[in-house]
Design a protein around this nucleic acid. Sequence first.
DNA 1: TTTTCATCAGTAAACGTTTTCCGGAATTAT
DNA 2: ATAATTCCGGAAAACGTTTACTGATGAAAA
Lengths: 346, 346
Amino acid sequence: MKKKPTIRDVAAKAGVSIATVSKFINSTQRFTAAVERKIQAAIEELEYHSNPLARSMITGKTGSVGVAILDICNPHFTNIVKGSNRVALEHGYNLLFVDTEESQAHEDELLEALSRRVDGLIVSTRMPEEHMEKVLGFGKPVVFSGRPAPAGIPSISIDAYAAAHMIGELLVKQGHRNIAYLGFAPARPDKERMRGLSDCLEAHGLPLMRFEVRGPTIVDGEQACSSVILRKDKPDAVVCYNDMVAIGFMAVAKSLGVSIPEDMSVVGIDNIPFGRFTSPALTTVDTQSERLGEEAMRLLFRQIAGDNPPDIGHIFLEPRLMMRDSTAVRALPQRESATPRLRKRA
Amino acid sequence: MKKKPTIRDVAAKAGVSIATVSKFINSTQRFTAAVERKIQAAIEELEYHSNPLARSMITGKTGSVGVAILDICNPHFTNIVKGSNRVALEHGYNLLFVDTEESQAHEDELLEALSRRVDGLIVSTRMPEEHMEKVLGFGKPVVFSGRPAPAGIPSISIDAYAAAHMIGELLVKQGHRNIAYLGFAPARPDKERMRGLSDCLEAHGLPLMRFEVRGPTIVDGEQACSSVILRKDKPDAVVCYNDMVAIGFMAVAKSLGVSIPEDMSVVGIDNIPFGRFTSPALTTVDTQSERLGEEAMRLLFRQIAGDNPPDIGHIFLEPRLMMRDSTAVRALPQRESATPRLRKRA
DNA sequence: TTTTCATCAGTAAACGTTTTCCGGAATTAT
DNA sequence: ATAATTCCGGAAAACGTTTACTGATGAAAA
């Protein structure tokens, strides 16, 4: 592990000043062919690469952007990262990322530390509005994703209200009458989904049952399942907070002898890739996660470039219904609930 | 976006020298109570946070570690990241990460850039040995994961040979006689799996068919499926490069009328969480991805601490067979191949 | 009391770059 | 040929820290 050559070494070897080398590297000034050749040779011989930290110190730019996500094990977020990463790379930027789930408590400290190392931040963790102010205080461009931010703060997300509404329409059209939402406690930030669904059902004169899930993961879905399955007045359709919850839910539902969609329809939100491969394939709403990441990053770069769009505000991506096999048409006066033997063949 | 206060501002406001402030912050020297109080007050009033870049410049430490992974959409890798992240956080380090798939071609440049910003690197992308040397040349501690590195280079991985061997044993015990491996072209780095399987079969006097898959993703598995399914001498069991490939494979196999495991057994490698929820649930080998990340990071920190273990070499994690429903016992003289109507109920 | 030593605080040099300014040489215009 | 302009290259300050090294102060030892 020998020491890295510095710009000074290059200058010495090439017999020029360090300023000259610097300007050559950044092609910020032209030089005579002889000089350029010497510098180039020195650089190659020494295998010199400039130290990005030192550069950052003086330019104030780091060449990297940060992404904070809630849980890297959720494909929804990995897709966001994938999208962000792509456009960051296109702009010649690196990605630093933070998985906040490991450290919910110190989320803002973590973000503050991160913010010092990057030129901008994408925060894709449903963060309470009070904290958003604080993050803005870090003095770096930020775009929030996942939920609408207060006015004036750039943010982007799926239209969760529309998504939930869409699901509601589908379910009532299919003849469901006892629809449940499996989501977070009222205080937690999934109001939009909740409202979209309940508004829709209300418009149809239908009630909405509510069940609670502890978190957004598969095991949370598994744990929540029995509380809805084991009721005598159990719903004939349950829309889950997200696909992860839905997958967990379906698995234990099946193991408890409730077959889906015959006994109960289940729908998720996010359209994670694995939803196609569960049994039955999961009906869901596509949230364009990858595009979300891309657009968020583009928004961020516009800010970094100082090109603050006049219409700085929240951007909604249009949700798209993905009809698959976890939802089925209900015969309206459904009374007998024999375990069905035959499965629809796709 | 007002300017960040510097240590100089704090010193001025507290009426002391910047050296004093610095030493106070790093608690590298004690001061009289009066001075400490003044500094503390100034820091809080200005909301001062020290600039990690400047610190890094002089200390040579960055406080972050880098992880390079092949594809963030593969749960195997996200688990690795999860594990690494946890222990990095425990050590007070941040994680920078790079998804190399987007830029296979410039992988080493990307890594070089990354290496300047971190104190150490975990490279979890099956990288050819020539490149490893180069990465070592960056002068930062590195641990490779995913495949054994040449002697002297710390690395950690599952024992892929043992894993494949294990799978082979299972399959022949279940009565399979025409076993295929769906993996990469011979030049690509999955020799261990290949060898483990073929050694096992050879010991039983059985042949091994080989099929090729383009990459490690679900869609690669989907695309590769038909080439093995549509042969007249199709295998009665196929072991896939990983779970992702297996999932893709199973999906199109089903859609082509081959039912699993009745017509054909399928097994993956990795034990990604979603393997439990496919239909049928995927038989696989657990590679302890999360633990892999943890151990890799621990190894890295030992290097960073300068505590180079004497037995610097490759660490193997023990694989564990996860028997699920995508493999079934074969009746030996199996001849009729009617499309079966009934499914085993779990 | 005087000497000896910790203890506390400050000065200034680094770290590896970029960038502003400046002067000389070479080129062009007069 | 001289003046005006462009082009090329260097000197040095700056970025925000950390860390020797240096004094000055006070307390403990003689």
